[in-house]
C-alpha cells in the first residue's frame, strides 16, 4: 500500500493507494501516525478512491484516525468510498460514527 499526504494548515488529506488488509494496515497506520505527529492536523480527510480492497483491518485504521482527530477536537472525513468499502463499513456499523455518503 502506498500513502500520499497533502497538508494545508490544520488539515491533512491522506490518500490510500492499494489493498488495505491486515498485511498492509499496520505499516500504513504507523506511517500515517508518524506524519500526523509532525503536523498535528485537527481535520483529517481519508481519500479511499484508490483502495482496491479493504477488510476489517481498514476499519481498525479508520477508527484509530477517528479517535486521533477527535482527541484534537477535530474531525475525520471519508472521501470517495467505493460500493464494497461502503458495504463493509455499513456492515460494521460505522455509519453511526461517520458520514459514508461522500
Amino acid at each position: 500500500m502506498r500513502i500520499a499526504f497533502h497538508t494545508a494548515g490544520t488539515s491533512c488529506e491522506i490518500a490510500l493507494i492499494g489493498e488495505l488488509d491486515h498485511h498492509a494496515a499496520k505499516a500504513a497506520l504507523s506511517e500515517i501516525h508518524a506524519r500526523l505527529d509532525q503536523t498535528l492536523p485537527s481535520s483529517i480527510a481519508l481519500d479511499m478512491r484508490q483502495v482496491t480492497f479493504m477488510d476489517s483491518s481498514g476499519i481498525a485504521l479508520i477508527l484509530a484516525l477517528y479517535k486521533r482527530a477527535r482527541a484534537l477536537d477535530g474531525e475525520l472525513r471519508l472521501r470517495s468510498l467505493s460500493p464494497p468499502v461502503k458495504r463493509l463499513l455499513t456492515a460494521a456499523g460505522m455509519d453511526k460514527l461517520l458520514d459514508l455518503s461522500a
Binding site: S56, S57, L88
Partner: peptide
C-alpha cells in the same frame, strides 16, 4: 487496537 473485532460479524454478514 490494531484489530476492530468485526471479523466474524463481516464473515456472517457477507
Amino acid at each position: 487496537a490494531d484489530r476492530s473485532g468485526m471479523g466474524f460479524t463481516i464473515m456472517e454478514s457477507f
